[in-house]
Design a protein around this nucleic acid. Structure first.
Length: 233
DNA sequence: GCGACAG
DNA sequence: ATCTTGTCGC
């Protein structure tokens, strides 16, 4: 049974507080040759979650492998409980990768979360992999703006504590909210996100996972429409 | 009670 | 996330 992802909100809260204690903020890996990225999308009918995991080489950042896993949607979107909605499908995709990555970049928050366990931290702990949360918008923390140039960063603080970085990954473009997920430091997380960048706002791992998730969803939609058309003829 | 709120 | 066209700027 998927004890990792209870459907009940009470159980989910309790599990987050428990797993948050297992998060380790240590030095990020120095030797990285494989980087993974993950994201999710909804199936065309909105009843399933498409978990997507990609494996890239480093520092080349070329796509080596793509894995897509479909799981039934069991939870509505509730801020703070995202991992219980997308986690099952994304975890399955990550576990299906042919090799274990040295680092994982996740579309979503790391420890910059109400209970310290955003989806990047949740997945990082479950897989015991160095993980980084790369969010496109803020979940918690003060909205301090970094400088306008790529690489500029401002501390993401909450209740006086720094929990991540607001990082500018492209000149003059909206910053990303980066926080460590597991086995990584706050500074190291931002450094790795920049190191995995290829000129776009999103670092390659999550950018590819993002794009391929949308691509796969579109394919499913076309297949569904073709099937419906045949039924009519 | 009133706002805020990853994807 | 998802619904959606054109449009301003490098």
């Amino acid at each position: 049974m998927p004890i990792e992802f209870p459907t009940d909100a009470k159980a989910a809260f309790a599990l987050q507080r428990k797993l948050a204690r297992e998060v380790r903020l240590e030095a990020c890996p120095s030797q990285v040759s494989l980087v993974a990225g993950c994201d999710a999308a909804l199936s065309p009918d909105g009843r399933e979650v498409l978990g997507v995991a990609v494996l890239l080489d480093y520092p080349g950042l070329h796509l080596l492998h793509l894995e897509v896993c479909r799981q039934p949607l069991t939870m509505p979107y509730v801020p703070g409980l995202l991992s219980f909605r997308e986690g099952p499908a994304v975890l399955a995709a990550l576990e299906a990768l042919p090799q274990r990555p040295d680092l994982l970049l996740v579309d979503g928050a790391g420890i910059a979360h109400p209970r310290g366990l955003g989806i990047a931290a949740h997945l990082g702990v479950l897989l015991d992999l160095p993980a980084i949360g790369v969010a496109k918008s803020r979940l918690i923390g003060e909205e301090l703006m970094p400088g306008p140039l790529r690489g500029d960063r401002a501390p993401l603080q909450h209740h006086g504590k720094t929990i991540g970085s607001i990082l500018r990954t492209r000149d003059g473009v909206r910053p990303l909210y980066v926080s460590p997920g597991h086995r990584c430091t706050i500074a190291g997380a931002a450094d790795w996100v920049l190191a995995c960048g290829r000129g776009y706002r999103l670092p390659e791992p999550t950018r590819l996972a993002d794009r391929l998730a949308a691509e796969h969803k579109r394919l499913l939609k076309e297949q569904g429409e073709a099937h419906s058309a045949r039924q009519l003829l």
